[in-house]
Design a protein around this nucleic acid. Structure first.
Length: 427
RNA sequence: GGAGAGGUGGCCGAGUGGUUGAAGGCGCCGGUCUCGAAAACCGGUAUAUCCGCAAGGGUAUCGCGGGUUCGAAUCCCGCUCUCUCCGCCA
């Protein structure tokens, strides 16, 4: 959520920042509502001050055994009604302001490349040589099906399109990759591992920015009003909701593996083959709560931690800085990591690392004190995949496939898989 | 799912209609004392919002929402969460 104070103080730069994202701004309406709201509050406060004073006087008289003067009581009864009207007015204005603010995205950092579509994203670096196969390689949907490790038909039988099942070597490869990534981040990069609920309350979805605007991409249980998370970012963001963290408690780094659920309504018809875009997938998510002044630097280190995963798996990748029009709703600055996959011959987005500045912290009311006695400030939050499983599995399978259809397991994963190779079909 | 108990400030805990934003204690911060520390003593210690350059002042907040009243932490109604016991259950 954007700060109404900032909008009041400097509407022009907020307007420009929103325009750089391709967003129409409602600032004029917002400012007018805000002015009216503040006026209603002032008037109400003034009346309440009068009433409090009179009530105190009545109390004093009563304690001395005297009756309250009837004209004062009458007048205060009148004042009470006026207060009620003003209260209702300011509550309504507040609701309207709040609901407008909930729909506005974060403001891009000044150093984010300007542009309205993904065409304007900037490749900031490459690592590794994109793999080319010496033989006709298969895309993973053929490869995995031939190996008998992914069953698309039976996934559809259970749950419909964009669902799949994994078995045998495939299931073990996924589990091993998750365990290895969690160990890497927790043992070597300083993250604390978490196990989290994947069903969350409505307000938790609001805190992370997924509601109210993106409801159609979420699965929802109506009876209990619980929502299936599209990423671990959602529960982690809300861990410290409505808390004031003491000094010295930042930064905090967390890592968690959860299933992620996405309806993919907006992408209907896209990427329908294979496991690149599915309704349920596993993801290892990194997350940071940091002091505002350090968030840009922390983002760079977050990206580096995600890159480390790719490097250790020997996956060639490129890092993109997303332009103003392509960063996600809560983000002020985002880097994507795309890994090369030799079968379908494309760059696959395996990680998206964002600095959400105080946007989620304001929504979820997460604050901290920089020093004992200091005024509470909103923290900055960052999130990044480290990494998203299906796409890592795609790249591992496609890049490491052999002419006979077998797949060699990356060295780093072998202690976790317990096998070095997924044997060729029929062997 | 059934029955009961309960949600007060960073924590514990008092408080059943009137100068109570809230006693007392703990914790924390500052000071006195000390070579230094401990102890003791003194003082300070919530958040949000509005007005104000500031100093300062007003208002709101005792789980949440509503009601009664000149006035609600205190009374009434609804909701919610926690705990205990029973039932069910991986």
């Amino acid at each position: 959520m954007l700060s109404i104070e900032q909008i009041r103080r400097d509407p022009e730069s907020v307007r420009q920042a929103l325009a750089s994202r391709g967003e129409d701004d409602p600032l004029e309406e917002l400012l007018e509502l805000d002015a009216r709201r503040r006026q209603a509050i002032s008037q109400g406060d003034e009346l309440r001050a009068r009433r409090n004073q009179a009530s105190r006087e009545i109390g004093r008289l009563r304690s001395q055994g005297n009756e309250a003067p009837e004209d004062v009581v009458q007048e205060m009864r009148q004042v009470g009604q006026e207060i009620e009207i003003l209260e209702q007015e300011s509550r309504e204005l507040d609701d309207r302001i709040h609901s407008i603010l909930l729909e506005l995205p974060n403001l891009p950092r000044p150093d984010v490349p300007r542009g309205l579509s993904e065409e304007e994203n900037v490749v900031v670096r490459h690592w590794g040589e994109p793999k080319t196969l010496e033989f006709p390689g298969k895309p993973h949907w053929d490869l995995a099906e031939d190996l008998g490790i992914i069953d698309f038909q039976r996934g559809v039988k259970l749950s419909g399109s964009r669902f799949y099942t994994m078995s045998g070597y495939g299931a073990k490869l996924e589990r091993a990759t998750i365990a290895w990534m969690l160990d890497l981040h927790s043992r070597e990069h300083g993250y604390t591992e978490l196990m989290l609920p994947i069903l969350v309350r409505r307000e938790v979805m609001e805190g992370s920015g997924n509601l109210p605007k993106f409801a159609e991409n979420l699965y929802w249980d109506e009876e209990d009003d619980l929502w299936l998370i599209p990423t671990a970012e959602v529960p982690i963001t809300n861990l410290y909701r409505d808390e004031i963290l003491p000094p010295e408690s930042l930064p905090r780094y967390y890592v968690a593996q959860t299933p992620c659920f996405r309806r993919e309504k907006a992408a209907a018809g896209r990427d329908t083959r294979g496991i690149k875009r599915v309704h349920q997938f596993n993801k290892v998510e990194m997350y940071k709560f940091v002091a505002p002044e350090s968030s840009d630097e922390e983002l760079d280190r977050l990206v580096a931690d995600a890159e480390d995963v790719c490097q250790r798996l020997g996956l060639a990748y490129r890092v993109l800085q997303l332009c103003t029009g392509d960063i996600s709703f809560p983000s002020a600055k985002t880097f994507d990591i795309e890994i090369w996959s030799a079968g379908c011959e494309e760059w696959l987005e395996a990680s998206s690392c964002s600095n959400c500045t105080d946007f989620q912290a304001r929504r979820a009311n997460i604050r901290y004190r920089s020093a004992a006695g200091a005024r509470p400030e909103f923290v900055h939050t960052l999130n990044g995949s480290g990494l998203a499983l299906p796409r890592v599995i795609i790249a591992i399978l496609e890049n490491n496939q052999q002419p006979d259809g077998s797949v060699v397991i990356p060295e780093a994963l072998r202690p976790y898989t317990g096998f070095d190779v997924i044997p060729a079909p029929g062997s």
